[in-house]
């Protein structure tokens, strides 16, 4: 997408409902990769309004390296605790995957300590996989901890969410799959993330799930994504935003659904790649109950109407973003 077009869009008054919302009225979305700890309540509000009913937050790198195991512990705790609660305030069901990311696997002393505490967290409720793990620089240390975590996932019967590298992606993706198979992991338990036109064929051919990240400038654009779905269909394909602390878009999934709709892609295919496939893949953890999607909304409603358990006294979870008055 052209940058000047982007600038023009944000300069317009905020009161208008974005055009893409027209195409996705009444649809439900599942974003299986988004880092909500880096996002604001405005994002949660916009996501709920756009039909996102559930998300998965993979454990990842925080933008700078951690210096001790306790900050990992607190981070894992926030994924199963505070962030899950924050999300519920907006009627969005929050799941997570827990793992040691590839970048920090290179700090071996710390990595050892993190491996020790991982079993404490992967058995928690709502932990739907081990992730995001895999390769970044493709170093021997990364490989060592990738293998160790595959074993953990196998023992716990959990799906694996694989981060594929930015550099040397094609080889890194192939190698990630080879190693998973070497450890006796069924490809249907593995979600290979951050695919592109170059990697998707092999991932699908070998029976793995192929996830695509719609992320401006550095990963997939959604026009390219439309072409991928036209070519490969909707079987075992899912899309996510991977929105984080970088320039990214928490509405990438609903926006891509709208674009697919405009491009004439069948609504059943849209439903599969923006909702159903992610649930099928991650529900293999036994930790996703779709009835909870409605439940979290009801809880939210009760918060809104009798104010019994809201964040702070009397605070409503939904504020009017268009109003000049802050009350």
């Amino acid at each position: 997408m052209c940058c000047s077009h982007e600038l023009k869009e944000t300069a317009q008054p905020l009161t208008m409902v974005p055009a893409f919302m027209e195409h996705i009225k009444g649809m439900q979305f599942f974003d299986p990769h988004i880092h909500m700890t880096s996002r604001t309540t405005d994002d949660y509000q916009a996501m709920a309004a756009a039909g996102i009913t559930a998300v998965i937050e993979p454990a990842f790198w925080l933008g700078q390296p951690r210096t001790g195991v306790d900050t990992f512990k607190d981070y894992f705790n926030s994924l199963i605790g505070w962030e899950r609660f924050r999300s519920s305030q907006f009627g969005i069901k929050h799941y997570c995957t827990i793992g040691l990311n590839s970048k920090e696997a290179n700090n071996e002393k710390l990595a050892e300590a993190v491996m020790e505490i991982l079993p404490l967290f992967i058995y928690k409720e709502g932990v739907v996989g081990v992730g995001e793990i895999g390769f970044d620089d493709q170093t021997p240390a990364e490989e060592k901890y990738y293998r160790a975590q595959l074993e953990l996932a196998k023992e716990a019967g959990l799906p694996v969410q694989i981060h594929t590298p930015h550099r040397d992606k094609k080889k890194g993706t192939t190698r990630s799959m080879d190693i998973a198979i070497e450890h006796g992991i069924d490809p249907k338990m593995v979600i290979v993330d951050h695919n592109n036109e170059e990697t998707v064929k092999e991932v699908l051919d070998r029976g793995f799930w192929a996830a695509f990240t719609i992320y401006p400038f550095t990963k997939m654009g959604n026009e390219r994504m439309v072409e991928v779905v036209k070519q490969y269909g909707s079987e075992r394909i899912m899309i996510n935003s991977a929105a984080d602390w970088g320039i990214s878009d928490p509405l990438a999934v609903p926006k891509t659904a709208a674009l697919m709709h405009e491009s004439g892609i069948d609504s059943n295919d849209i439903h599969l790649v923006t909702f159903r496939n992610a649930i099928t893949a991650f529900a293999q953890s036994g930790q996703i109950n779709e009835a909870d999607f409605e439940m979290v909304k009801q809880i939210d409603q009760s918060l809104k109407f009798n104010g019994s358990t809201v964040l702070r006294g009397g605070q409503q979870p939904f504020r009017n973003a268009q109003s000049t008055i802050i009350s």
């Binding site: 512990k73 705790n77 199963i80 605790g81 404490l120 967290f121 928690k124 409720e125 709502g126």
Partner: peptide, 9 residues
Amino acid sequence: FSAADMNEQ
């Protein structure tokens, strides 16, 4: 307590 998720807390 220190490693508890919301329901455990």
